[in-house]
Computed example of a mutant assay.
Amino acid sequence: MGPSASWKIALAYAAFSLAWILASDRLFLLLFPVAEELTRWQTGKGLVFVLLSSTLVYLLAQRWEASQRQASQALAASERRFRALVENSRELIFVLDNAGRIVYASPNVGQVLGYDPLGYTQAPIFALDFLHPEDRIYAEAVLEDLRRHPEAVREYSFRLLDAWGQVRQVRVWGRNLLGDPAMEGIVLNVRDESELEEERARLQGLLEALPGRVFQARVPEGADPAWLPLLYASPQGERLLGYAPQELAQDPEAFYSKVHPEDRGKAQEE
């Protein structure tokens, strides 16, 4: 029961009691001047007071219990929705204490990484223990960075080791909520990007196997892609033309600047 509810019940009971005592005493003195008769009525008044005050307390308690029951049902429904969302997601949620120990892990940790999501309840588990050894020092610096910047959101990339010993490439969004009484921890949202990295590597291999050269540029509506900075230039171009991919990617006019002056007009028309 919260302080506000307690005060409301106490004040309601005090107001009712005070009004009953003052009003009934004055009324009975006027109606029953004889002491013996007044005593009988005072006793009856006391019994009625007990009955009415008990009824009042009962009604107030029932109202409080109903509000608590509704709040509990709303919380349970919210927890079920949250669990349904995270269990069917590839994005993991961890909460760490100030020392880096896991104090919460979303249920889908078992599905995605193969670890027991309740393992932290059986023995202390440090989040850094799951990092690839080569990323451990970087991760320690990241944890310290989060400690130093409360409330700020930071984004990082790591390699994790899953329960089967495989390396997982993950992207992590961290936020220090140690000072928030509702959380009191460092919240990590972890997205497994291993499949994306594998697809990117396969695509890279296909592009590099093509006999010609591949360019990529982000083209706003109405813009000429040939005059935009390159986002990607396949590496076999260096073998074909002698220009490094980095050199072309840094030149906003990379395409036309390498076309023979006599052919630029024709290339622009096409």
Score class of each variant (00 low, 15 high):
W7V: 06
K8W: 15
L11E: 04
A12C: 13
Y13I: 14
Y13A: 14
F16W: 05
I21C: 03
A23H: 07
A23I: 10
R26Y: 07
L27I: 04
F28A: 02
L29R: 15
P33G: 06
A35W: 00
A35T: 00
W41E: 01
W41R: 03
F49E: 01
L51Y: 03
L52T: 02
S53Q: 07
S53A: 15
L56G: 02
Y58C: 03
Y58V: 00
W64T: 12
Q68T: 04
R69Y: 05
R69S: 15
Q70E: 14
E79P: 01
R80P: 03
F82Q: 11
A84H: 12
S89C: 08
E91W: 01
L96D: 03
A99S: 13
R101F: 09
I102M: 13
S106L: 13
P107K: 10
N108Y: 09
G110N: 12
Q111D: 15
Q111R: 15
G114E: 09
G114R: 10
L118N: 09
G119D: 05
Q122T: 10
A123N: 06
F126Y: 14
F130E: 01
E134P: 03
E134S: 14
E134K: 05
A139P: 01
L143V: 01
E144D: 13
D145E: 15
R148M: 13
H149A: 12
A152F: 09
R154C: 00
E155I: 15
S157Y: 01
F158V: 06
R159W: 05
R159C: 04
R159E: 08
L160T: 00
L161C: 10
L161Q: 13
A163V: 03
A163G: 05
V170I: 13
W173P: 01
G174N: 04
N176E: 13
D180I: 05
A182Y: 06
M183P: 00
M183F: 08
M183V: 13
E184W: 01
G185T: 06
I186K: 00
V187R: 05
V187K: 06
N189T: 05
R191M: 09
D192E: 10
D192F: 04
E195M: 08
E197R: 13
E197S: 07
E198C: 08
E199P: 00
R200N: 07
L203D: 00
L203W: 04
Q204I: 02
L207V: 11
L207C: 01
E208D: 15
P211V: 01
R213F: 14
A217Q: 02
E221H: 11
E221W: 07
E221M: 06
A223Y: 03
A223M: 02
D224Y: 03
P225M: 07
W227V: 06
L231A: 12
P235F: 06
R239N: 02
L241K: 06
L241D: 10
G242V: 12
Y243A: 02
A244V: 05
Q246V: 05
L248T: 01
L248N: 03
A249K: 15
Q250D: 11
D251Y: 04
P252V: 03
P252L: 04
F255K: 05
F255I: 14
K258N: 13
V259A: 06
V259S: 03
P261D: 11
P261H: 08
P261G: 09
